[in-house]
Nucleic acid binder design. Sequence first.
DNA 1: GAGCGATGTGGAATCGATTTCATAAATACA
DNA 2: TGTATTTATGAAATCGATTCCACATCGCTC
Lengths: 332, 332
Amino acid sequence: MATISEIAKRAGVGTTTVSRYLNHHPYISAEKKAKIEAAIKALDYTPSAIATQLRHQTTNNIGVLVSRITNPFFTALFDALERQLHNYGYQVMVMQTYDDEHSERAFLNQIKNKQMDGLILASVENATSVLQVAQEFPKRIVLLNENIADPNIRAIVLNHYQATLDGLNYLYAKGCRRIAYATGGDFSQKGHGQERNNAYRDFLAQQHLPENPDWIFQQQHTIADGQQLARQLQALPKDRRPDAIFTNSDEIAMGLIGALMKAGIRVPADMAVMGYDDQPMAAYLEVPLTTIHQPIEEMAQAAVYQLLTCLGQTLTDPKPDLTLKLVPRSSA
Amino acid sequence: MATISEIAKRAGVGTTTVSRYLNHHPYISAEKKAKIEAAIKALDYTPSAIATQLRHQTTNNIGVLVSRITNPFFTALFDALERQLHNYGYQVMVMQTYDDEHSERAFLNQIKNKQMDGLILASVENATSVLQVAQEFPKRIVLLNENIADPNIRAIVLNHYQATLDGLNYLYAKGCRRIAYATGGDFSQKGHGQERNNAYRDFLAQQHLPENPDWIFQQQHTIADGQQLARQLQALPKDRRPDAIFTNSDEIAMGLIGALMKAGIRVPADMAVMGYDDQPMAAYLEVPLTTIHQPIEEMAQAAVYQLLTCLGQTLTDPKPDLTLKLVPRSSA
DNA sequence: GAGCGATGTGGAATCGATTTCATAAATACA
DNA sequence: TGTATTTATGAAATCGATTCCACATCGCTC
């Protein structure tokens, strides 16, 4: 309610001196300091963050963009980001795109209107949108676990190609030869998850296995998708069913396994299922998931370090280990 | 980068006119409108949100406070809040307290420094802190699923007393007479979860069952807590073990059941376990959880409606149904 | 006792928008 | 034709902080 000039007036000093007091500048007489303190207490004064932001041209807000926070992988990632950014004195603003390009675009614009000092994008809907904004503000944007091949864009990238290959080879080593594949996006050359898709393609080629369109499932995300996926697999004639499926998230695997078991298809005996992410619940399911572990805390560390150093802070580089590791449990 | 006066200069008009254009005021000649549009495009101008905020004294930011976003109940709640607030044009700022009073206090202060127009508190660490701030800004704060009995504080309250009673009676009807209880906070008269605690106490009294301190577990939150809890139960001599346990979250139940099964204690045959929240994964566990369903979407609706109407928006009241319902599955 | 650096202070400009107020032309109305 | 009313516009004040600049005082040195 009260403003700095009211404090100044009440304390009988200039606003400059009050501002100095607030910002712990030296060269204030003890006498005035006391008066200012009294005035601040009397009027229950808190400086307006907005005015400071306008003057400083920074907000101390960082935006984090994810597709769906209820995806436990993003939940954990967001948690790690929030904790670390908070530690450095930043407020975190969240945005879920729900796979909508327009929402993404709108959120990106908030970097232009100075609402946020920086942005961490943990999922990317429309690469050209992002590219455009990132071109303009290369120092304010960091991609996390998404890759747009462009020298202007900073990105924390993990080797999902290798991890996917590892997972598929693991299934192969277990004797599986009819390996299906479920991806979150399209199974095209470009876009979201292409590295994993390429790994699947290359794996099939390396092992001289045919690529079967009936065994490639696209736009799979949720538990419900996994359940639906189980129905699709059931619908296939027995001799044309896969004996394993590599999914792109533990959520799909979770829904899938539940529905398969209910339908009398045993996991992994009849069908091995490989998850992705190693979400916290992965170990507690009816069939504990064999899955690919993503080093979430380290990923967040890397992204925060990148962003904040670009924003001018000097931090010690945590040099986190960003390798993806296969975690063998029971589902494959 | 560019400012409104640069646009004005380039378009050969006053800043007033540019502002009018930006805010879709009437009474602008087509000629000047075109010039302004051209200038905006040429300079790639986006109005500074901060300047607008300073002038308007509102930010269009709403803060949401939870204890831990990785608690799936809070994840779902936050998701619902974010979607709805976003729909009304608000940005959402998150804060996790991690059960720390100081963080909570710091976050509450952001309402004083005008960083946020309103606050939704989905968990409360220190009631007096909240009370103090809420007294000053009664219209800007809504409690969600937390109750501080004070006429100045708006709160969305559910009947957890009745739901807990329902759950306990369900166990009783199943033949359980040795019912343990795990709470997230203290088992004292005051504070977090007291209604549920009271229900447990009253239930025991009503059924003439003794209150056994060995069967009351406090500060239980996570999966790990549940696992630890299983060890404590195991450690009890068989004849002094409970035959059921009412937990205060699905997470505890999840960790507990997993560890019990591993130790050869069958659920629900040897020990019935009741969850709380009905988190999405509750149906997919090795032993699907019998639990209390919290109507998350409706709770978010109610909180958002309360807050935004207090902030001066006129919305149609969704009048959501906020009853808690027991969902019988297999764990009890 | 003139000159210099350290200490202490406040008026006014600034950040970038919105809004008040004053003003004027065009149009409607009687 | 004279008076309202509508349409159209911009200079300047405003929001609440920070900071530049100008200035004053004190103690110290040469």
